[in-house]
Design a protein around this nucleic acid. Sequence first.
DNA 1: GATCCGTGGCA
DNA 2: TTGCCAAGGAT
Length: 376
Amino acid sequence: MVAEYTGLAAGGPSLAERVVAWQRQHGRHALPWQQTRDPYRVWLSEIMLQQTQVSTVLGYYERFLERFPDVAALAAAPIDDVLALWAGLGYYSRARNLHRCAQAVVADHGGAFPHNAQTLATLPGIGRSTAAAIAAFCFDERVAILDGNVKRVLTRALGFGDDLAVARHEKQLWALAEGLLPDSEGMVAYTQGLMDLGATLCSQRSPRCNACPLGGECVAKQQGRPEDYPVKTRKLKRSRRQLVLLWLARGDFIWLVRRPTTGIWAGLWSLPEFDSVEALEDAVAGWPGSTQALPTFTHVLTHLDLSLEPVRHQLADGANANANADAELGSRWPEGQWVAYRDLARHGLPAPIAKLLGRSDELFAAQEFVDQGEPL
DNA sequence: GATCCGTGGCA
DNA sequence: TTGCCAAGGAT
C-alpha cells in the first residue's frame, strides 16, 4: 500500500524539485568522483561504492586511478595487479568483473563506455542501478537508480510499506522511482541528491527530519515513524566455518597459494588451507624444521563467522631438503609460489591474512612466551 | 527466489 | 556480544 507523496496533491514543489534544490545547496560536491563526468572514473567509483561506505572507498579510489588512469590501462593489466589494489575492499568478484568489463569496453565498444544505461547494464558487474547512476551522472539520462539510500528515502517519502524482500514490491518501487524523475537537466543533482539525503539526513536509525527538504510532505514523517521504513524481512542466519591455515616460511619467504576461482576470497593469494589440523600436521610431518600453533582468531563476515587456525612451520635450511620440499609443494599447489615478505603488498591477500602476516612480530613474541611455558 | 560474496563501523 | 548493513550483482 502506497500513501501518496503529499507534495503532489498539494501542488507544491515536486519531490524532485525539492531534492534538486537541496542537493545544489546542501549536498556533497567535493567527492573525488564528482569532479568529473569521465565514465571511467564514475564507473570505478560506482563499483567500489557497491555495499561499501564512502570513507572506506576514498583511499582505494585514488590509488587505483594512479595505477590505472584509464580503461585501456586497466584492460591491459594482469588480474593480479587489479586484485592487489582491491585487497581489503571485499567482494572480490567486483574486481574480477571490473577487469572483465574494462576488457569488454576495449574489445567490444571501441574503448569508450556506452552512453546509455541499457547497454551499460550488459557489461560485467554493472547491474540496473549502477548502469543508471553512470548514465545519469555522465550523460544526463533520465533513468532511476535504486540503491540502499534511495530505497530508504523513497519508501519513507511515499510511505511505501510493502516488504521489499518480495520481488513484486521492489519492482513497484522501481516504477515509482521512475515516475518521480525530473527533466534531464536536473538528473545529476537529483540522483546525487537522493543518495546524499540517504547518506546524511535520512539515515537508518535516527533520521534528521527537521533538516529534510521534503519536510512535512514525507509520509513517514507525518506518521511519526520514519525508522519503520523500508520494510524488509530478513532471515540472516550466520553460520560458522573453520579455516586451518599453513604459514609455511623459509628464511624471508612465505609460501602463498592462489585460492579457488569460486567461494570466499576467490582468486586471491592466501595461505594453504587444510580440512583439519590433523591433515595439516600429516602434511608437514616429513618436512625439516619446527611447527608451532599460532593463536586462533575470528574473522566476521556478513553471513559467516570464520575461525582461523594458523599453524606456522619454519622450514630448515639445507639444499637437499629444500629441493624435496619444493617438489612436493609444487605438486600439491601448482599455483603456489615463494613470496618475499617485503613483496606481500604486491599480492592480493584477504584482510585477515594480511593482518595475520603483518602482526608477525607480535605473534612471534607471543609464541616465545608459549615456548617458555608462560601464559599468553 | 534464495544464496553467496568482505569489510568496517556503529549502537 | 550481537545484529545490522552500506552508492548491488551474479548465479
